[in-house]
Design a protein around this nucleic acid. Structure first.
Length: 260
DNA sequence: ATGGTTGATCCTCAA
């Protein structure tokens, strides 16, 4: 089962590139972030034509996540538990039953948090506390599960070209990285680092200042696996070349293959 | 390099 995450930065602007990549990479399950549209405006028909089922959790203008799957999306849940007052569309999860195992897929668009300090950073840290709780509950299920998406977290210095430039950024502040570790160290595996252990593996390059041309990137799109999912992992890759396409997103797809 | 670019919306905000 090939599972991928892709922050498309606007599904309406990125539909041709998404369809090209779906045909090329042929993922079984995809978590999309920043669809930036309401559910009714999501171009489901074009994606369904490639054989996918679609579940969306959108909102007007910003944020918005979706799951695509060639197999049925079962038990779909929208919204990260823990704060009924949070109306930002950043979390969607569902179960996909494979040939040998059922996988719980959780797609997220974790808050950016800039500028920090400030209310947006407070929201990010509070959201990460809720993520930690959901991650713990999933571990207790002792089933294959994946936490995937745009985490807006640079875990370590090796995950960016220029750590000094990010020192005061909400994506790299010590409190951000500590909150990420609190999720990870409960028992999750950072799948990409199993197969791409070297430095200079990035998933995002800013549109500004020629970041792509200079390979001035950061690794912020992650796939975290429960032990039961990590036991099934066969491969993990960044589809880096997609950043060089016409009208690209500032993120590229990241994917894993599970024996499921 | 206190710059630079993109998307969605309604001109500025978020990233």
């Amino acid at each position: 089962m090939r599972i991928a995450t892709f922050n498309v930065n606007g599904i309406k602007a990125r539909l041709p590139q998404l369809l090209d990549w779906l045909r090329e990479a042929a993922p079984d399950v995809v978590a999309l972030q920043e669809i930036k549209c309401v559910d009714a405006a999501f171009p489901a028909a074009e994606i369904e034509a490639l054989g996918y089922n679609v579940a969306t959790h959108g909102q007007k203008g910003f944020n918005g996540v979706a799951l695509l799957s060639k197999r049925p999306l079962e038990d779909v849940c929208r919204g990260l538990p823990g704060d009924d007052a949070d109306d930002q569309a950043r979390w969607i999860e569902a179960t996909v039953v494979g040939d040998t195992a059922a996988v719980r897929v959780c797609g997220m668009y974790l808050p950016n948090g800039n500028p920090a300090p400030g209310p947006k950073y407070d929201y990010k840290l509070a959201w990460m506390d809720r993520l930690e709780a959901r991650a713990a509950a999933l571990l207790a299920e002792e089933m294959p599960a994946v936490l995937i998406g745009d985490f807006n977290v640079i875990p370590q210095g090796e995950d960016c070209r220029d750590p000094a430039a990010w020192a005061a950024d909400a994506l790299f502040l010590p409190a951000t990285r500590a909150a990420f570790r609190r999720v990870l160290w409960q028992g999750y595996t950072d799948a990409l680092r199993l197969f791409e252990p070297e430095a200079e593996v990035y998933t995002f390059w800013d549109y500004q200042a020629g970041a792509w041309q200079k390979n001035n990137g950061i690794r912020i799109d992650h796939l975290l696996l429960t032990p039961q999912a990590a036991d099934l992992v066969l491969d993990a890759r960044v589809d880096r070349h997609v950043r060089g396409w016409e009208k690209p997103s500032d993120h590229v797809p990241v994917r894993i293959d599970l024996a499921a």
